[in-house]
Structure formats: C-alpha cells, structure tokens
Design a protein around this nucleic acid. Sequence first.
DNA 1: ATGGTTAGTGATCGACCAATAACTTTCTTC
DNA 2: GAAGAAAGTTATTGGTCGATCACTAACCAT
Lengths: 191, 191
Amino acid sequence: MSAEERRESVIRAAVVEFGRAGYAGTSTAAIAKRVGVSQPYLFRLFPDKRAIFLAAARRSVERMRRRFEQASEGLAPQEAHDAMCRAYPPMIADRDDLLFQMQMYVAVSAREGEGDEEFGAEIRALWAETWDSIRDRLGGDPQLTRDFFGIGMLINVSLAMGFPEGHRVWETLDIFEQLPASGGGSEESAG
Amino acid sequence: MSAEERRESVIRAAVVEFGRAGYAGTSTAAIAKRVGVSQPYLFRLFPDKRAIFLAAARRSVERMRRRFEQASEGLAPQEAHDAMCRAYPPMIADRDDLLFQMQMYVAVSAREGEGDEEFGAEIRALWAETWDSIRDRLGGDPQLTRDFFGIGMLINVSLAMGFPEGHRVWETLDIFEQLPASGGGSEESAG
DNA sequence: ATGGTTAGTGATCGACCAATAACTTTCTTC
DNA sequence: GAAGAAAGTTATTGGTCGATCACTAACCAT
C-alpha cells in the first residue's frame, strides 16, 4: 500500500480512536492497531501525534462542510435551513465522527496549555470556514444561523453524553417533525 | 486544615486542571500542585482520580443549576428565559468552569471505553436534573427550552475553541442586545 | 542480477503517571 | 505530658506512552 493510502487509513482510524478517548487519552499504539500497522510506522507517515490529530480534524470538518453545502445547493435561506436540518441526522449517525468533533473542540485548551497556539488557530480556521459557508447558505440571517448551529451543538452534546433514544432530553430536538415535508430519518451510512 | 476543607479545595483545583487538559490529560500531580499538597495525599481524600473528577462534576453542574434557579425565581416562562439569558454571561466569565463542563461531556465516551458505564450514568443524571429544572422554569415550553440550551451550547463550544472577542462567530450570539432591558455584561466574578 | 527507493518491523529509551506503603508532624484531650 | 487521632510527606513501583534507531523485505528500473 502506498504511503498516501496508508495516511488515509490512519486518518480514518484516528477519527475513531481520538473520538472515543480524546487527544491525551488516545495512544498512538491504539491508532496503529486499528490501522493494522506497527506503532513506530505512524511516525514515518506523520511527524508526531499532534499532526495525526490535525489531519483528522481537517478531514472531519471539511467533510461536514461539504455535506451541508451539497444538501443546500442553490436553495433559498429558509429552504436551505430545512434541507440542512434534514441532512444532519444521517451525518451524526456516524457517532465516531461526531465524538471526534466534540473532542476537537476541547482539545484546543489542552494544547494551549502546552504552549501550542497554532493548534487552536488551525481548528478555528477550519470551523470558521464551515460557519461562513453555512451562514451564506442561510442568506446571512443571524437568527437562522444561530439557531441552526445552536440546535446542532445541543444535539452533539446530548449524543456525546450518551442520552439514550427516547430520553426526555430528546423531546425538544426532534427536528424532523418540525420541518415541512421530509423523508424522515431513514437514511443511514455516511459516504 | 480539615479533610473536608481540603477536599473542597481539591475539587476547586480539579475543575481548573481537568477543564484545561481533560480527564486523561490531567495528572493528579497537577491537581495536587494547584492545591498545594503532595500528590499521594489526594488518595487519602478520594479513592482515585475518577472520584475527583466526579466530585468536580457534581459541584460544577449543581452550581450552574442553582444559579439558573435563583435567576428565574418566581418568573413566568418568557421572563424566566430572559432572566436566565442575562444570568449566563457572568457564569461563563468563569472560563475554567465552562471548560470543565465541556470536558465533562466528552469524558463519558472515554470512560465507557474503559468499561466504566456508571461514570456516564452519573453525569447524565446530574445534567438531566438541570435540564428538568430549567425546562420547568420555562413552563415546559419545548421551543424555549431547546433554544435556550442550544444557544448556550453554541456559546460554550465557541468559547472552548477560543474564538476571540469580536470574531464574526459571536455576531449572532450577543444575547444581551436581543433582550428587553438588562444590565448588560458588566458583572464579573463567580461567587 | 543489482542498486536504489519505498514500505514496514522490533527493540528500546526516557519521561510520566496513578496508586501504595511506610513514615512524620501537628493538634486535641484527658 | 502522654496517648491517639488526624493531616500530611517521601520514596517507590509497575505500567504506559511518544518517539527514535537500526534493521529487513518488497518492488522497480536499468
């Protein structure tokens, strides 16, 4: 397998492992094991653990942005909002990816504590890109943007904490039923 | 100093340290250093690291709940909502506490990976209490509750990621200016 | 087939970390 | 002032982790 292909599979494994245990809680050995290579080989593909995490962050955030963009392609603000709401459930069905993004948010402060400020800067830049993109799709409407991200974050947190389906926390979050004509949440699998 | 007093100061230090580096990223030595005691002494006050984190979680979440309850005491749903929105800025001025809560959300999956399911159960229970309390104050209104928590979570995430004041991400989140008559965000310090 | 490039491994190392055990100091009470 | 409890320390240990080094195996062009 080429180095580039290996790097891709490392990134995929990193999203899973980092998502479950966080930056500090994930050993490079755990990632290597999931990839199916030896632990030292990771350091041929990436300079250090930090770089693996950042590569995973880039991949995860950009994928999210792309999916929202595809879902809202060419739609007016309110329709774009509804379309992106409908696009969200199949996205968070990939729990590993969602957990990784949560870990990404909190990893910033830890890295800053180690004197690594570029880490946070890169993650903020990635996320701000998504913010801008979605904001544009929503016609720059502040309230739509805020509500969309707000509810999204609340869903993320509730999922990360592991509230089971049917828990009263979810009562207010069934965004399907509050939207005009949609297919419901039957789709699965993230491409 | 009595053991009980020491335990309190350990909890305070734990919120700060865990908040900055997460569960796995925080050493018991770092907590002990902040408290001003030797590292092994922590294990006289608490059975293990996990118990320190859970004690900090209890303290942090219950304090938040109490503050929201005080702010909305005896008010009708919409007024309670506005009052709690106004109460939030001084609360998140304590960045350590906010970061800790973010770390708390993501710590669940990591502990589950270690076979510790009670950890998540306890944190969910703590948080669900707060959810119920606030939901009641908002008259059980699903939309008010969802929006309140949603915007709160978005603020939390944006702060955790370290977006500086004035960044365009904050444009939509200035909840002060969207509320009727408030004191603004001049208050500081968390009692 | 041979020389070089690329993919990949085993061994190891210094640092760190949670937790235990054994010991010392300080306060309290009779 | 002696006894005992409560507060607190030093030393240590078994284990883990990120990273480096030296080495091997497969592929490829000449």
